[in-house]
Amino acid sequence: MTPAPDPDWLYHHFEAAGAEAELARFRAAAAGSGLVPWQLDLPRLQEDWLHLMLSAPPQTRGISLEGARILAEQLREAVAAQQERARSLIGQSTACPLDLHALFPVPPEILALGPDHPEARSWLWREWGTPRPLRHVREARSTGGALRLRFWSADWSPWQALLRLRQRFPTLRFTLRPVYEEGG
């Protein structure tokens, strides 16, 4: 499994507008941790990191074999702790006001593949319209009848999620506008 290339991040303005009761229902459904609890192959990652650190000739790499082993193990432990923290926040945190995983959860069989697996990336494109969770989702100047958000999405607008939102909340009006000016 090869890592996915680094995505291009696109800034967006998003608005959900309508009756306050339905908007409150949307807010409750959309709020989540902003994280996806992927299952990572930690032994494989540890081995990959070890090989990466040892790929340079010994005289130029700046780390011994034993040092590389220790560091790869520490990286594995740090990622495992980070993954456990992410899992503990799912269903508990509402820090992200537009969490695609809270709205349209990644199924367990896809989570088991990991975020860089071709089938997982295909599922995200098909279901969300973007290959990664939204980043830096922030509320901006919302009023009683509208929720306005700003966020970054990977490679494309989350257009599939928007289509699904319109079906799930038919009385709300959703608008999504990418911002191409430098810096959003």
Rank of each mutant, 00 (worst) to 15 (best):
W125Y: 08
A112E: 02
D116R: 00
E119G: 12
Q92L: 12
I90H: 03
C96V: 08
A112V: 07
S122A: 15
T94Y: 09
L111R: 09
P107I: 13
T94G: 13
E109Y: 03
L100R: 02
L103T: 14
L100G: 01
P97G: 13
C96R: 02
W123F: 07
L100M: 02
I90S: 03
P108A: 12
P107T: 12
L98V: 05
H101F: 04
T94M: 13
P97W: 13
I90K: 04
P118N: 05
G114H: 10
P97C: 15
E119D: 15
L100D: 00
T94P: 01
L113E: 04
A95W: 03
H101K: 04
P108H: 04
L113C: 08
L100W: 00
I110G: 15
P108I: 10
A95D: 06
R126G: 06
P118D: 05
P105G: 03
A95V: 04
G114E: 10
I90Y: 04
W123K: 11
L113S: 08
G91H: 12
E109P: 02
H101P: 01
G114D: 10
P107F: 09
A95S: 09
L100V: 02
T94D: 12
P105F: 02
Q92A: 12
A95K: 04
P105E: 00
H117G: 14
R121M: 11
L111I: 13
G91S: 14
T94H: 14
L89Y: 11
D99M: 13
